[in-house]
């Protein structure tokens, strides 16, 4: 399989998780591409402007990438904290549209600023890895860490509080859950994941500009989650992987490829209103798998 496509699928999965986190507590935020764009811009600026980060070797040191990630996380985290405090007072479609507005404002401003390279953006971003395979390994590790953290989160108190808010916010509040802080936590975590993903993407794509985060990206990343499922972290991961791969895998059908892509995102929610991956389906599949293994195992 084409490793560069695999790399983009992994990035898609990470962005899926970023949209999923606020949705898990019932908040439809479409700000992910905005934070992704910020993360990428941080990486692009740091790695092209600060020569000290370049190290002395032929390739860009991985420690510098990790440093960029830390800076990107810090920047997006602080921004998300401030923005979240304001926008999370809104609900449902209002929250969704206000986050779309944020992404658009950010895009327009960054197109007009000269230090972000304006329309042309920043190119020639140094490469920490020589091959796409190495990118895949690095991104897989990051995805694994993020998934593990999500899994931990879903089993601990803040994660359970998120689920409670999603079911019924008033009831959750009456049980003593600090709903405002829990929602803010989900929003900030979402921004962190998007920002860190932007850092890898900027290096991988080796050029970066404001168009990386736009309205289209808001909606396609939402499709990852809706398609995959909003009740376990595995849903957005599967959705991100499959829907990123789809338009590329459909290249052989030529002119029809985007029509087929449209059909899939039209039919997906109709056929699987809960998303493809639900906790129930997961446990059924694992039961089936266990049964099959038992059947195949030689009886002593």
């Amino acid at each position: 399989m084409d490793t560069t496509l695999l790399q983009q699928m992994l990035l898609g999965a990470l962005l899926g998780i970023s949209v999923y986190l606020p949705l898990r507590c019932g908040q439809l935020s479409l700000a992910t591409p905005g934070f992704y764009a910020i993360g990428g811009t941080v990486a692009a600026l740091l790695s092209t402007r600060i020569t000290a980060l370049g190290g002395d070797g032929a390739s860009y040191p991985i420690s510098s990438v990790l440093l960029e990630m830390a800076v990107a996380a810090l920047v997006t985290g602080i921004l998300a904290l401030g923005i979240g405090k304001v926008v999370l007072r809104l609900r449902g479609i209002y929250l969704a549209i206000s986050t779309i507005a944020l992404v658009e404002i950010l895009r327009v401003v960054s197109l007009n600023l000269s230090f972000t390279g304006g329309a042309i953006g920043i190119f020639g971003i140094p490469q920490p890895f020589a091959t796409p395979e190495a990118y895949v390994v690095f991104t897989s590790l990051l995805l694994a860490v993020v998934c593990w953290l999500c899994d931990r989160l879903e089993r601990t108190r803040p994660g359970l509080a998120m689920a409670a808010i999603r079911e019924d916010e008033l009831a959750a509040a009456s049980q003593g859950i600090n709903t405002a802080n829990t929602k803010l936590l989900a929003f900030v975590l979402s921004a962190l994941v998007a920002g860190v993903t932007g850092v890898i993407a900027a290096h991988f794509l080796n050029s970066w500009n404001a168009r990386m985060g736009n309205f289209d990206a808001s909606i396609t990343t939402l499709a990852f989650v809706v398609f995959g499922g909003t009740r376990t972290w595995l849903g957005p991961v599967v959705g991100g992987l499959v829907l990123t791969a789809l338009p590329e895998l459909l290249r052989p059908v030529g002119d029809l490829r985007l029509i087929v892509y449209g059909l899939v995102i039209l039919l997906g929610p109709v056929l699987f209103p809960q998303g493809v991956i639900t906790p129930e389906r997961l446990s059924r599949w694992s039961r089936m798998l266990r049964q099959r293994l038992r059947l195949e195992a030689p009886t002593p």
């Binding site: 439809l28 969704a96 909606i219 939402l222 499709a223 809706v226 398609f227 002119d255 029809l256 985007l258 029509i259 892509y261 449209g262 059909l263 899939v264 995102i265 039209l266 039919l267 997906g268 929610p269 109709v270 209103p273």
Partner: peptide, 25 residues
């Protein structure tokens, strides 16, 4: 199916993608 109305954002987007690309085709 009494599904989450949020899903209509995605299905209508799908319908839009189909229409636009049909015009192009």
């Amino acid at each position: 199916r009494n599904a989450d109305p949020l899903l209509a954002l995605i299905t209508s987007l799908g319908a839009g993608v189909i229409l636009v690309n049909l015009i192009q085709l």
